[in-house]
């Protein structure tokens, strides 16, 4: 198994350089016979959204991206240190699947998988008419990651106050 950690300093101008470093690493570490183009496309959009999300919503100065590659699975883990996502309080109470966003195209859910842990899931909605275009969401980050990933899980650790997002891509 190959693996490497990357530091992101939570600033606009470092998104592209860090993204390029990580993608170069993944490109070099993927097995030769893998479906590299599709995997790299998924990795690119997922890492971009993880970094953008850190920039917009995290109050910590640094975000760690940890990449691990086996012969079948690419795992991208983002960790930073700040308050938990608000949805954790809801899923800890209901222990069920809650809708985070819903529009004419998708419903995005957070499903409780353990205390302080959720898995993101989505459903595509049959479009019967386009009259509700005005209801379409304008924040696509979590949806993009959820749809590009095979598994996308978020965990909050109260002991160290860490937010961990784990994205798994099978290739």
């Amino acid at each position: 198994m190959a693996g490497k950690k990357f530091e992101f300093l939570n600033s606009d101008e470092t998104i592209t350089p860090v993204l390029k470093q990580i993608l170069e690493y993944i490109k070099g570490a993927l097995p030769a016979k893998s479906n590299a183009d599709e995997t790299l496309f998924k990795a690119k959009i997922i890492i971009t959204e993880l970094l953008t999300n850190a920039l917009k919503h995290s109050h910590s100065k640094i975000t760690i991206i940890d990449v691990k590659i086996t012969n079948k699975i690419l795992t991208i883990t983002k960790t930073n240190y700040s308050d938990p996502l608000a949805l954790i309080a809801k899923t800890n109470t209901t222990r069920n699947k809650i809708a985070i966003t819903k529009d004419m195209l998708h419903t995005l859910y957070a499903k409780s998988t353990a205390n302080d842990q959720v898995q993101f899931l989505y459903e595509e909605i049959d479009i019967v008419d386009t009259s509700s275009i005005n209801d379409i969401i304008e924040h696509f980050g979590l949806l993009i990651i959820t749809k590009a990933a095979d598994i996308f899980v978020y965990t909050y650790d109260h002991n160290v106050q860490s937010n961990t997002f784990v994205v798994t891509i099978e290739y």
Binding site: K44, I45, T48, E49, T52, I133, N134, I136, I137, E138, H139, F140, G141, I144
Partner: peptide, 16 residues
């Protein structure tokens, strides 16, 4: 060459 979720959000806002 590449578009992210923020720009997609802007496109949707423009469409609306």
């Amino acid at each position: 060459e590449y578009i992210d979720s923020s720009f997609l959000g802007a496109l949707v806002a423009i469409l609306k």
